[in-house]
Design a protein around this nucleic acid. Structure first.
Lengths: 239, 239
DNA sequence: GAGTGGTCTAGACCACCAC
DNA sequence: TGGTGGTCTAGACCACTCA
């Protein structure tokens, strides 16, 4: 890693504007696109590319014929694809894991079906109790396509798997389909999570894909309802 | 409504390409940007604007130096801001409502806090049992800023409120912050939903905003866990 | 009517991939 | 090395808002 990082102009402009916006009250007008053009010495297309990103992030809103304005602050951000570790750190908690199972197993209809694999395809299976600040937060069963992550079981598995996938295997998970349900924890599950039997839990099912749309990871997470909630921002579709 | 609708070129191109893509297998290469330029008689910037939308929707992926390709089909779409009625119709169910409460009430810390209003501000309150195919699906308490929807209580409230807001009041909800939890239904709630007491339920809290980022609606929904789950696609953030 | 954001063009150079 | 997508420019016209 050398110190040179290629950062496009529109990205640099976006960051400068983000810092600027954070210090402005809601509904403050931003400079006009043409003024930003001269102020930062870039073309209007570049300015618009930066503003497009800010608008998509919900930081500003634009009114044709009037201008661009600071939006009221959103409580949360768009829900993004993160690993458990990243998620917890973002919340200010210290993540950890207790590995219950780590082995290789052929795909059956359950695990392979979600990954759209034929039965028998080798999968890495991880069953972990995920801890936050040393207390159980969630019970997680993960399947990974073994072919994509050779030797994974020989590694430390306490940190962020997504980071390992990216750095060691060049596998970048960019998209995931999720399904969220409310369930009553089973006896065994409740015991592992430190809950009373039949206590409510949040069940999250996820299939994550790489850039090309190939399924790589399938995870079922069971979160303690008293410790976890999902927060996110959604938008109205145009179509 | 006259028949003339202004549709930008990039939008027309996006639709044409969407239709085209639907008939291609995954990983098929699309024509190059420069070829689309000549084929459709538009500039490359316009082509890229159309492709940007397709990429954001997860229909294609781009590899620098190689080309643009059809992505594998995603099961579900990005979670978008919809009303209960729209949500149910999309699932092929018939929505209906049983209104329990419909009145005007001053904001207190609970209701006003989420909407970021000062206590005392008039609010419209709706408590409804929402039905899908004539069976209880969810128990919903909605607060609307009364000033934005004068006379709402005189209207039929069985249909889509979002449609009423847009068509009658020009209020377009474009963004919402949501929080999802798993809870055990209380006795009264369980009775209204046709559940056993302490049965698991999905609790969804939502605050919806208009284009300018002003909070307009605050809703708490309690869904029957055995009938409802949330499905959505999420993406990895660049930053 | 002056000024704003929305759309569109024609052209250029760069980084990257595959042959 | 040739072609691809990624970035950027300078300029134009349109639709819309607001005084």
């Amino acid at each position: 890693m050398s110190g040179t990082e290629r950062v496009p102009k529109y990205e640099r402009l976006r960051r400068r504007l983000t810092d600027h916006i954070d210090r402005l009250p809601a509904d403050s007008p931003l400079p006009t696109e043409r003024e930003l053009t001269t102020r930062y010495g870039v073309s209007r297309a570049t300015v618009r590319q930066a503003l497009d990103a800010l608008e998509a992030a919900g930081l500003v809103y634009r009114v044709q014929g009037a201008g661009t304005f600071v939006a009221e602050q959103t409580v949360s951000k768009t829900l993004s694809l993160t690993s458990f570790s990243e998620d917890m750190r973002r919340k200010g908690l210290v993540p950890d894991s207790r590995v219950l199972v780590a082995d290789e197993t052929p795909a059956d209809e359950h695990s392979g079906g979600r990954l759209r694999l034929s039965p028998g395809t080798p999968l890495i299976r991880l069953v972990r109790v995920r801890l936050a600040d040393s207390a159980p937060m969630c019970l997680e069963t993960t399947y990974l396509v073994a072919e994509r992550v050779p030797g994974l079981l020989d590694l430390e598995l306490t940190g962020s798997i997504y980071q390992v996938l990216a750095e060691r295997y060049g596998v970048n998970l960019v998209r995931a389909d999720q399904a969220v349900r409310s369930v009553a924890a089973g006896e065994e599950q409740a015991a592992l999570l430190g809950l009373a039997p039949r206590a409510p839990a949040l069940r999250m099912e996820r299939v994550a894909y790489d850039e090309r749309g190939s399924a790589v990871e399938s995870t079922v997470s069971l979160y303690r309802a008293d410790r976890y909630e999902i927060r996110f921002t959604i938008h109205r579709e145009a179509t």
